[in-house]
Design a binder for these strands. Structure first.
Lengths: 174, 174
DNA sequence: ACTATTCTTTACTGATCGGTCATAAATTAG
DNA sequence: CTAATTTATGACCGATCAGTAAAGAATAGT
């Protein structure tokens, strides 16, 4: 998974995957079928792990808003390395030309967005976020900002201004 | 250029480039040296054209804010196709592993960000954007949002909600 | 202990990759 | 019109690609 995450699909060869996994070529093919299936497996694994980590911190505090902040910090700190976010990387590299990948990304992203919108709704009920803002719109705003941050951090921005920008966004909701 | 834009660097073969350009293999190599140099040339060409188009609409109106909206609409409409934005695509695919590309992207992005910040500053002087917001921060916010939009549009979002989101962002500045 | 079966390893395939180079065509010079 | 020089062409190169299949090692069944 790490190889795909770091280098992307096309740039990762089966030899790379053998080195990373320690397994030999035949074993990989016997276990996964082909490169594409192995990639799909990796993508789903990544999504599950990341969603799990995000959900794990999302109930730490009594305050829904604090939970949102914790979750966003978690995601942002994951994505602030040069590896970025594997979902974002895959959207850019494969989604336009690979229907199976696009469907998977759509499903995963919608799930994550529902989760965020739900948390925002709770924060509104708790009076921590202004109630006149639609949770779905704020969730989209957050997803866009996270995706953009994961992109820009790779090329020309320090992580800190991007993190500040995310904080500012959430602050603007209260 | 179009091939790199659509498919990315690794997924575009020299044969593809021959088909697209009509030129034959040897001619391409004689003219550009190698694939990487040809890509750099394409990237700079893309950046020049896009910046030119953005700058062209940036003085259409008397109102700086209207000019910002026009420019953003222009960028967003370019990037709302499945091709996305070539700069964003390149940041994701190549920037982490290719110092030359990263430097080029950094230079181009900073230039664009200075341009946007400058426009925001003018809009503030004209009283169209709240003056207490730092132009550089707003410019970053906009770049992040544009980059995120160009990513998400490829995988799971219709273009319209993303365009609305961008409009909302600018509205929040006034 | 012996056979049957599963898993592991690696040599191999055809295709395609980026890149080169000798030749052919075209252009220019005299 | 011919010779020299530039430009266009595609056959060709070694390397590497994703993927296969046969041989070898380990495990399980009886």
């Amino acid at each position: 998974m790490d190889a795909f995450w770091t280098k992307g699909y096309e740039a990762t060869s089966m030899s790379d995957l053998c080195c990373r996994t320690g397994l030999h070529k035949g074993s990989l093919y016997q276990a996964f079928g082909d490169k594409h299936k192995l990639f799909m497996e990796s993508l789903h694994h990544y999504a599950d792990v990341e969603f799990g980590k995000a959900a794990a911190v999302a109930y730490d505090s009594e305050s829904p808003l604090e939970n949102i902040r914790a979750m966003v910090d978690m995601i942002a700190s994951e994505a602030k390395s040069e590896k970025g976010c594997m979902m974002v990387n895959t959207m850019v590299e494969l989604a336009p030309h690979d229907p199976e990948v696009r469907e998977a990304l759509k499903t995963i992203s919608r799930k994550r967005m529902r989760f965020i919108a739900d948390m925002i709704g709770k924060a509104q009920q708790a009076g921590e976020i202004r109630a006149e803002l639609a949770p779905e719109k704020l969730a989209l705003q957050l997803m866009v900002t996270l995706a953009g941050s994961a992109t820009l951090v790779k090329a020309f921005m320090d992580g800190q201004p991007l993190l500040d920008n995310i904080e500012n966004l959430i602050d603007s909701w209260v």
